[in-house]
Amino acid sequence: MTTTPETDLAVAAAGLVKTFGAQRAVATVDLEVRRGEVFGVLGPNGAGKTTMLKMLATLLPIDGGEASIFGVDVRRQPHMVRQLVGVTGQYASVDENLTGRENLWLFGRLLGLSSSRASATAGELLERFGLSDAADKRISAFSGGMRRRLDLAASLISRPPLIFLDEPTTGLDPRTRGQMWDTIRDLVRDGSTVLLTTQYLDEADQLADRVAVIDRGRKVAEGTPDELKTSVGSSTLQLRMSQPVDTEHAAVVVRRVLSEEPVLTPEAGGLNVALVDANHAAEVLIALRQSGLSIASATVQKPTLDEVFMAITGHGAEDESTDLTLEVPA
């Protein structure tokens, strides 16, 4: 085991591989998470994010490559790694048969706290996560958001220096998602290192210092959220012309105004163009009006994960095609 520069890294993984049968769920991924940062792993369903996290958390055996957590080898010292990492799963890993308080007490006991210390910690965490009122209800009566919060609370009992959050807000309504984000930000303020996976570009943007984009088990890009977004523009203008025959003409106008190449969409009369600033949409609309081109609809949207994928890999998040590994300039 090495003691060299890697110890400044919370996570250091090289050539990580996981194979399920003939399928490579994770194919030679390198990952470096620095101490104290929030690192986001962004990718669609089935990209291998969770599998990767499970390998790093000792929940799945590593089939190939090397991984260490704060310099501790994951494969050789799983028990030590487990003392350094708190894991919050995609599906809340709490016990349905117990109440919120009992759950936290049990995990506290398992982590070596005395019974009274475990009770006190459970009380503090329930308070901090706004669960005091529901503390003595069984988990089956908890809402999705409450379960996630309890799950996160359970990961913090031992104050681990590194926290894994696997899709912390998938399936939550927007309001609960916002609360979860605030909670995660608080964690970071306390100095924890966080490795989170997400399907949502805006979540990565909101929370992460750096992001790796994962597609079909491979890392296809890495950088700050800003760098990532620059590659797709901060937003997209979607236009639909009243007369499909105007599309070509409209494309010329758009190109002139924005010096940006619009993409013609499959539906007749549709074109999309990336905007560096959402306000530039107005100039495009004015120019179209002045050219006597009539639009049926115009929308300005933040780039979706699909568009990021389109920009980075040349294919959508869902479609089946080639293995492209373009690096976003970092």
Partner: peptide, 17 residues
Amino acid sequence: DKGVFDRFKSLPIARIA
């Protein structure tokens, strides 16, 4: 098969427990 076992596995506890 329940989620809570993922947590048990991720905790630094004896595998026999």
